[in-house]
């Protein structure tokens, strides 16, 4: 039987283990930006990926359309029933929007946390190994995308921008199990309740909304949106609906399980959201405090 590991091989193995640990340590810490070789490789592969993924998506889209045709009749019936409600809703929205604008003018308040500019993007890749829930999209720094921006689909928030290169960026989905990924959220009701989205229950496929006050009364089906308090995400991006509320381990807080509005799996088009109102710089705040003193 030939020897599996000779001395020379053993040394190579040990050296490569050291390199492995060093590389993992280097890449897993919180990084502001990717190194330029990484960006270059990402851009190059991103180009090849979009060359393949667009035609593939067209073909898949065609089959999906055919499948959709089968349900057309029933869907049409249901949609017609909804149409009546819609007219009423439209009138309401218009009056409210007008009122809102007038009130803002009175207050002389131009800045709005819920205003944002969306950048449309197409998903060109997805991490196949599925430990990290990552997507690759075809817009990057050149299109004004920066780290930590919110990413939404038509149905709601799906994640944030994890890293950017010149022409592509990587999105981390909300369903990723990353303890550093926290999003300030609120439950809309008579009184708004604030908490943070932390973690994802993989078995039940629900998001965990933690740090809710223990005395808050939360009901099922209440809507959860972003609060805009972090200064990174705009306000009022829909996240999902409350399914269940349980007390925390220590009874000081409550945790709500939230069913995400967006599908984390069938994602083709996304929008990257850039906040119009920038959070004030730290230097501004400190200088104001000094003035008060």
């Amino acid at each position: 039987m030939p020897q599996f590991l000779s001395n020379k091989r053993l040394i190579i193995l040990l050296v490569s283990i050291i390199i492995l640990v060093a590389l993992i340590g280097f890449s897993i810490r919180e990084r502001e930006k990717l190194t330029w070789p990484e960006q270059f490789i990402k851009d190059t592969t991103g180009w090849v990926q979009s060359a393949f993924s667009r035609p593939a998506n067209y073909v898949a889209g065609f089959f999906e359309n055919v499948r959709d045709l089968q349900n057309t009749y029933e869907e049409n019936k249901e949609l017609k029933a909804r149409l009546d409600e819609l007219a009423q809703l439209e009138v309401n929205v218009q009056t409210l929007a007008k009122e809102n604008k007038e009130l803002r003018e009175i207050l002389d308040n131009k800045e709005d946390l819920s205003e944002f500019d969306p950048v449309q993007a197409i998903v060109i890749g997805r991490n196949p190994e599925r430990w990290h829930e990552l997507l690759v999209i075809n817009k990057g720094k050149q299109d004004g995308i920066k780290q930590n921006m919110a990413v939404i689909t038509a149905n709601g928030l799906i994640g944030k921008v994890k890293s950017t290169s010149q022409f592509t960026s990587t999105i981390q989905l909300l369903s990723a199990n990353d303890p550093t990924n926290r999003i300030s959220a609120k439950i809309i009701g008579e009184k708004e309740t604030y908490g943070t989205i932390e973690g994802y229950d993989e078995e039940r496929k629900l998001l965990k909304l933690k740090r809710l006050p223990y005395d808050a009364k939360i009901e099922k089906d209440q809507i959860v949106t972003t609060s805009g308090l972090g200064g990174v995400f705009p306000q009022n991006l829909p996240i999902g609906k409350v399914v269940e509320v349980v007390p925390d381990e220590f009874g000081l807080n409550q945790t709500a399980y939230v069913e995400p509005g967006a599908d984390f799996y069938d994602i083709r088009h996304v929008m990257v959201v850039t906040v119009k109102t920038q959070a004030p710089d730290l230097s501004d705040i400190t200088s104001e405090e000094e003035e008060e003193l």
Binding site: P2, L20, L23, I24, I41, P128, E129, H132, L134, T170
Partner: peptide, 27 residues
């Protein structure tokens, strides 16, 4: 290495395991 950079963003895991497994299989 390409897999690590493009898909997982944790460099090293596949860069190390792919060649190692290829080596064991060839042996």
């Amino acid at each position: 290495l390409l897999f690590d950079i493009v898909y997982t963003e944790v460099i090293g895991i596949y860069f190390f395991l792919y060649p190692l497994i290829a080596y064991f299989v060839s042996k």
